[in-house]
């Protein structure tokens, strides 16, 4: 097997609290590997450090300890290397209010200096694919929450990244739309041979999408891991589902860490 696309080795992230209540560990010696072409779904209670893990993969924050490697490189230090390689769908839409839907999708392509004509065609195609044709010239304030979320999905996909990080991308959509997009998402990742990490709060969604499901402790560490494929029997799926349920309910409910 080739080198993993993402490799975390004992990654720890400690945030210092501005009010001086000491340090806060969001990620605690997290280790995992993700292979090329894999779709990995990540589950975990709120505040367990899932989004923080994404920020480390995306090179937006540097781990306090441990090592994060993406395609064999340091995502935080090697800024230019990763240009165009990682696409993120953030938990909130993060659209630029001064750009229209189309211009928001174009952002990444413009940063990558793509040919303007081609970039526009690509962006339009993505908006259409996500059911937003006719809204190209709308500003974000004129779009619904679910529409904005889809614009931000289009923005991440439009740059055709090798690695896709999706933080609850379908959470603000109705179940029908979400189901269609889930199918489309898996098809796209497979078709273009991407590697994807997908955060969700729904066990069922995680199992539908993932080749592998990871459940996180709080602070973030692997609490449970299961591999799934087309041949996994229904009874095995049910067992995985129950196991994840059990692992997640064993986690403390509060948002504060035990002292």
């Amino acid at each position: 097997m080739s080198d993993p696309v993402i490799r975390f080795t004992n990654v720890t992230t400690v945030f210092s609290r501005p009010d001086g209540r000491g340090d806060f560990t969001a990620v605690d010696r997290l280790s995992f590997e993700i292979a090329k072409g894999e779709i990995v779904a990540v589950l975990g209670k709120t505040g367990c450090g899932k989004s923080t893990m994404f920020k480390i993969v995306a090179g937006l924050i540097e781990p306090s300890a441990g090592q994060a490697r993406v395609i064999g490189h340091d995502p935080f230090r090697e800024f230019d290397f990763f240009r165009g390689k990682i696409g993120i769908v953030f938990q909130n839409d993060r659209l630029m209010p001064w750009r229209t839907a189309l211009d928001n999708v174009l952002l990444g392509l413009q940063i990558l200096d793509s040919d303007p004509k081609q970039a526009e065609d690509t962006a339009r195609a993505w908006l259409t694919r996500l059911g937003l044709s006719g809204h190209e010239t709308d500003y974000p304030h004129a779009l619904s929450g679910g529409m904005r979320q889809r614009v931000s999905i289009a923005r991440a996909f439009a740059v055709d990244p090798e690695i896709l990080l999706c933080d609850e991308p379908f959470s603000s959509l109705d179940e029908m739309t979400a189901r269609d997009l889930r199918t489309e998402f898996v098809r796209l990742v497979r078709q273009t041979d991407k590697t994807a990490v997908f955060i969700t709060h729904q066990i069922k969604e995680a199992m539908d999408i993932g080749d592998r499901v990871l459940a996180f402790h709080r602070p973030a560490r692997i609490a449970y891991e299961a591999r799934l494929n087309a041949t996994t029997s229904d009874s095995d799926r049910q067992r995985v589902h129950d196991d994840i349920m059990r692992v997640l309910s064993a986690e403390p409910a509060g948002t504060e860490q035990g002292v």
Partner: peptide, 24 residues
């Protein structure tokens, strides 16, 4: 900060960051 992170995730040059995010 959210928009800053989002823009940085595309890894723009300083000049591009200035034009696309800071100026607006």
């Amino acid at each position: 900060k959210d928009l800053f992170e989002m823009t940085m995730s595309f890894r723009p040059s300083r000049w591009t960051l200035f034009r696309f995010l800071i100026v607006p």
